[in-house]
């Protein structure tokens, strides 16, 4: 009996070793498949921003009590500032005709509105952006990697806007810079694709301000991007807005376009 036991042990040892190595390798594989919170954020940012100055056509629809009320057609030009990593956005109104030609310029946390009738641009203060369309702009221009530190809460199955279930990383984000508009953000990004599915944006006081749903992913400008974003106002729950993205185009955007003084002379196309 003693002879068999020792042989067994001798044989088991390498088996055990192989087993351990296999096991270790598997965990290593799993470890290399699990990104850090930062990596997820960067992945999300890549989905939302093509990484090159671009232009896109937006169709905004405002809903009151789930009924559509207003529709605006806009052209959005986006360029990331080299140094500050801010996203500077120029919005030009195309529809309806009464608003055509009006422009809005976002530079970091500053916002200017330009009216072609008066040829005057006025600064809209943060106070004045509390409600209305300018508030939507704040959500869209959130710059995750730059302004937030992230923590992975876990993995969840989440229903997207089309009632499909998606496996998501659930991120908890806290403001890291004073320029971060929202003190606290929750993000759900689809595992593997890094597609943002849902975002919840909270104020300094801890109140939920806005909920965003991203869906209808299509091939656009070198990647899959959401063709529609749904924004729900969590404070005034009667209000919601849908934003349809179309006609993504990479475009070199001159620095002068993103200057407030240049707005009166701007003729984009």
């Amino acid at each position: 009996m003693k002879k068999y036991f020792s042989v067994l042990v001798l044989m088991a040892f390498p088996a055990f070793a192989i087993f351990m190595m296999l096991a270790l390798r598997m965990t290593q594989v799993q470890a290399s498949e699990q990104p850090t919170a930062n990596e997820i954020m960067e992945g999300i940012d890549r989905v939302r921003n093509p990484g090159h100055p671009y232009r896109v056509v937006l169709a905004l629809t405002e809903y009151v009590n789930s009924k559509p009320r207003d529709r605006d057609g806009l052209i959005l030009y986006v360029k990331q500032d080299e140094q500050s990593r801010h996203f500077n956005n120029l919005v030009r109104f195309a529809e309806p005709p009464r608003d055509a030609g009006k422009m809005v310029l976002y530079r970091g946390t500053n916002l200017w509105f330009y009216d072609p009738n008066s040829k005057a641009s006025i600064r809209i203060s943060p106070q004045q952006r509390l409600i209305g369309q300018a508030a939507e702009g704040d959500v869209l221009s959130v710059n995750l990697a730059r302004d937030y530190t992230a923590k992975i809460v876990g993995e969840e199955a989440l229903q997207d806007a089309d009632h499909h279930s998606r496996e998501c990383w659930h991120l908890d984000l806290t403001a890291a810079t004073p320029e971060a508009i929202y003190n606290h953000v929750e993000y759900w990004a689809e595992r593997g694709t890094y597609h943002p599915i849902k975002g919840k944006f909270y104020s300094d006081s801890g109140r939920l301000l806005k909920i965003a749903y991203y869906h209808k992913y299509e091939e656009q400008a070198g990647g899959l991007r959401p063709a529609q974003v749904i924004l729900i106002d969590a404070v005034n729950s009667n209000l919601a807005t849908t934003i349809d993205y179309s006609d993504y185009r990479f475009q070199d955007i001159p620095e002068s376009w993103l200057q407030r003084d240049y707005l009166p002379r701007l003729k984009p196309e």
Partner: peptide
């Protein structure tokens, strides 16, 4: 306020906003 006439024919059908809002209420 009368809804904008251009909203009558929407390119994309309206999403189920009630459901989405209710999820987080």
């Amino acid at each position: 306020r009368q809804p904008d006439p251009s909203t009558n024919a929407l390119a994309t059908p309206a999403p189920d906003l009630d459901d989405l809002a209710r999820r987080d209420k």
